[in-house]
Every structure is written in C-alpha cells, then in structure tokens.
Amino acid sequence: IHPGPKKAYAKIVSNLLLAEPEKIYAMPDPTVPDSDIKTLTTLCDLADRELVVIIGWAKHIPGFSSLSLGDQMSLLQGAWMEILLLGVVFRSLPYQEGLVYAEDYIIDEVHSRMSGLRDLYLCTLQLVQRYRKLRIDKEEYVTLKALALANSDAVHVEDIQSIQKLQDLLQEALQEYESSQHWEEPRRAGQLLLTLPLLRQTASRVVQHFHAVRAQGRVPMHKLFLEMLEAKM
C-alpha cells in the first residue's frame, strides 16, 4: 500500500479546516441584570462580530474570491444565518442540554423560554440531534458549511456557472472524503446533504424572529447585522 499523491479533495478539506475561524466569545455585560433584552442584545452583538469573521472565512473557500463581488455578496446574504446556525449546532454537539452560542454563552431551555426563544431553541435542537445521530466530524462540518454558502439559491446571481462550479467542487470534496474516510457508509454524503433543507428552514425561522425583534425596536443591533437582516426581507 502506498499513499499516492494527495488528492484534490483532501487539499480542499484541509484548506477549509485551516480557514476555520478562532473562537468568538459572547462576553455578556456583567453590569447589566439578566433579562430577555440582555440575552437578545448579547446574541445580536455576537452575531454581528461573527458575521465579520464569516465574511473573512468565505474568502478562504477555494474559488469564492474568483466570483464577482456581486455574487460573493449574494451568496453571503443568502446563507449567513445557515452558516451562523451550523456553527452553533456543531459547538452544541457534545452538550446534552443547551445551545452553545459561544463557549461563554450556553443557553438552556429555561433561559431560552425566558428570552422568548423557546421555539427557536427546540427547532435548533432538532438539528443538533440530526447531526449527533450522524456523528458529523469536523471535516464534514467545514465542508457542509462551505456548501451551504455555495448553495444559497441567491436570487440575484450574475454568473450561475461559476457558482455551479463551486458547488460541484465542494460536493466532490465531500463525496471523496466520505469514500476515503467513511467507506463503510456509502450513503453518508447523501445523508449529510439531506440535512441542508432543515438547516435552511431553521435559519429562515431565526431570521423571521429577529425581524420581529427588530420591528419592536427594544434591542440595539449593529449595522452589519441589520444590513444582513435587511437583505433577507
């Protein structure tokens, strides 16, 4: 047995692993008493900072930076909540109770209910359970996250062929990774791709919720978060 040349997929997956952002902390303000507003403010602030990081991360996806600026924007505007959510879900896998928005901000069902987030908590937990059952690994997580971006079904797209090429490249990377690392589960790549509809559906519910929060006007939101929320009207 000889290892042979490093396969193209392995390079893509290892690039995606290297592109994984550093941890971000929620840092809830200790001087402010706990309330639903505090929780939502902390989450919106965290999301705003994560968005900056996600935009930087996207540039490391092979082929993304070659897309037109307009198409890069469209993909990010379409998929940002799916990417944020997938991060929360992956971080939450080892925890039996609670969603790990950040290592310093784990929210359980009681805290979620008090913040008006119980429905979102339960549907996000459904995603956690789905990935837990699949025993998704980090390589699969980073590839699926890039695929969610490439597959955002953005409405205003200039060069659909280049986006299709990006999707094909990432899908191929996932399939080849599975054939090599999980060869005993021939349907695994398909099973992972079949989680994407639930991810989109859940992301859509989260966006709707934050549209309503925004309309109430009680929670301060930073500009980038607002901008991305507005793109999903």
């Binding site: 600026l69 924007m73 990010l76 500009k223």
Partner: peptide, 19 residues
C-alpha cells in the same frame, strides 16, 4: 451595494465591522 455597504467594504478590504 449602497444598501449593503459594510458587506461590500468587508469583502473588498477586510476592514472591521462598522459599529
């Protein structure tokens, strides 16, 4: 792009979020 100027700028320049 006018409505999405922070995203536009971050993609072009990589500067931090305009808070």
């Amino acid at each position: 792009t006018e409505r999405h100027k922070i995203l536009h700028r971050l993609l072009q320049e990589g500067s931090p979020s305009d808070i």
